[in-house]
Design a protein around this nucleic acid. Structure first.
Length: 269
DNA sequence: TACAATGTTTTAAG
DNA sequence: CCTTAAAACATTGT
């Protein structure tokens, strides 16, 4: 489920637990979501610690605790963070619960494609360093994007937009939205775009991300009415721009939606 | 029943 | 070593 804006939304869900102590930690160490993670150390360190802050980077989140505990969370396809009263009862797919005096901070993930990481130390964990430039940061330049597209020049542009090493936070619906607004067919090769298309793409990557983040905490309906987003999953949906019947197919290993008339396979200059 | 689901990771091949 | 494509992962809903 969660892409850039949704991840940010979920990160904020635990916000009411800031500056409050974790009294106890409940988890099931054998669950897949904890693969490769020392759950004993996690529980021992976070128990008694205070939640000091958090940040999101693309689809990754990092929660910082008072005694050198760092909790990394990726929500995968179906992960969610929520906050409930202190005495909330764990539901079937609740894998991690941090109990505070007034709240329970809960991570759930039915499919467990998500992941929990843990680190104890004075500085940020190694897995939180060397991250790609955030889309809305100053470092996310057009030159970087062009370089990235050319490095992955023989892959379909849709697949390249989904690479987190270049576009942290972009997921399936955002990629389709960006390509539709840029009028670029998803199967076009990343290295064969016209410079004009690349410029348009670069700009839409940023504007779609900005608009998505602006609707955080509200519902998806707050995204502009004119966006493909609202028609993507409709059976027999039509292009908001010109009314053409939308196409759906596989691209970059994912279901992809596009408008066959706005997004041509071949470019006419 | 069978397939698909807003995502990585692994494996194999070029 | 690098890139690309396809399968795998676990669960639920249609």
């Amino acid at each position: 489920m969660p892409e850039l804006a949704e991840v940010e939304y979920f990160r904020k869900q635990w916000g009411r637990g800031l500056r409050q102590k974790i009294l106890s930690v409940e988890s099931h160490a054998s669950k897949k979501i904890f693969r490769g993670t020392d759950v004993v150390a996690l529980s021992k360190t976070l128990g008694g610690a205070t939640l000091l802050g958090s940040e999101a980077h693309g689809k990754q989140m990092l929660f910082r605790f008072s005694n050198g505990g760092w909790l990394g969370i990726h929500l995968g396809m179906t992960g969610k963070l929520r906050i409930e009263p202190a005495d909330a009862v764990a539901l079937k797919h609740d894998h991690l619960i941090l109990r505070q005096s007034r709240h329970s901070l809960i991570l759930s993930d039915p499919r467990q494609f998500g992941r929990v990481l843990f680190h104890r130390g004075k500085t940020e964990p190694a897995w939180w360093r060397n991250r790609p430039a955030q889309i809305l940061s100053r470092q996310f330049t057009r030159a970087r994007v062009e370089q990235f597209l050319s490095r992955h020049g023989r892959a379909p542009i849709k697949a390249v937009l989904l690479l987190q090493s270049g576009f942290p936070g972009i997921g399936n619906w955002m990629a389709d939205e960006i390509l539709w607004q840029s009028k670029i067919h998803p199967a076009r090769l990343a290295g064969k775009l016209h410079p004009r298309e690349t410029r348009k793409l670069y700009s839409k990557i940023q504007s779609v991300s900005r608009a998505a983040l602006r609707t955080v905490g509200k519902n998806d309906g707050d995204l502009p009415k004119s966006w493909l987003f609202h028609r993507r999953w409709e059976e027999g949906g039509h292009c908001p721009a010109d009314g053409s019947a939308l196409c759906r197919g596989q691209c970059g290993g994912r279901t992809t939606c596009w408008c066959p008339s706005c997004q041509k396979r071949a470019v006419h200059v």
